[in-house]
């Protein structure tokens, strides 16, 4: 597959920007609109764009499906793990305050960061997984038959 040169050039310029923007949304979620959900989707969009331009196989080389699967689980575990840590520290599930007992609001800060990171990972992976799953199906009929 040899994509159009303009598309290739433009996308090469865009994809890092999209990824950057995703992280901006992720970390600015503390102060303004944003957060793991939105950032995850944007991050996935970067990869999807790459796949659209350069082909699914190239994208799979860049981000292998096995990573994606592990990413999904890792995201959920990061979220849940935060809760488990607070449990182990003797408080309620996801009660971030205990992370830094002498300054609860800091703990809340760290906690939400970890959780949002988990969300980012999970959402981005799931989006990619869905895309891979649909994209990599071999149609057993030719396009005209649809």
């Amino acid at each position: 597959m040899t994509p159009h040169v303009i598309l290739r050039v433009v996308s090469k310029l865009l994809i890092p920007l999209i990824a950057m923007f995703a992280f901006y949304v992720q970390f600015h979620g503390d102060y303004g609109p944003g957060g793991g959900f939105q950032a995850g989707v944007i991050l996935a969009a970067a990869v999807i764009l790459y796949a659209l331009i350069f082909g699914l196989d190239e994208a799979k080389k860049a981000i292998p499906p096995s990573w994606v699967r592990i990413g999904m689980t890792l995201g959920v575990l990061l979220y849940g793990g935060t809760g488990v840590v607070t449990w182990l520290l003797g408080s309620e599930f996801l009660s971030y305050g205990v992370l830094t007992p002498d300054h609860p609001s800091h703990g809340q800060h760290y906690g939400i960061l970890a959780v949002e990171l988990g969300v980012l990972l999970a959402v981005a992976s799931v989006m990619l997984a869905i895309f891979y799953a649909f994209g990599s199906r071999q149609p057993e009929l030719s396009d005209e038959d649809w």
Binding site: T73, V76, G80, V84, F93
Partner: peptide, 20 residues
């Protein structure tokens, strides 16, 4: 006390692990 959350969280997290 914590059983209420444990019963929900545990299968949720382990379900995610099970999948891989």
């Amino acid at each position: 006390y914590h059983g209420a959350a444990l019963a929900v969280v545990l299968p949720l997290l382990m379900g995610a692990i099970c999948a891989i």
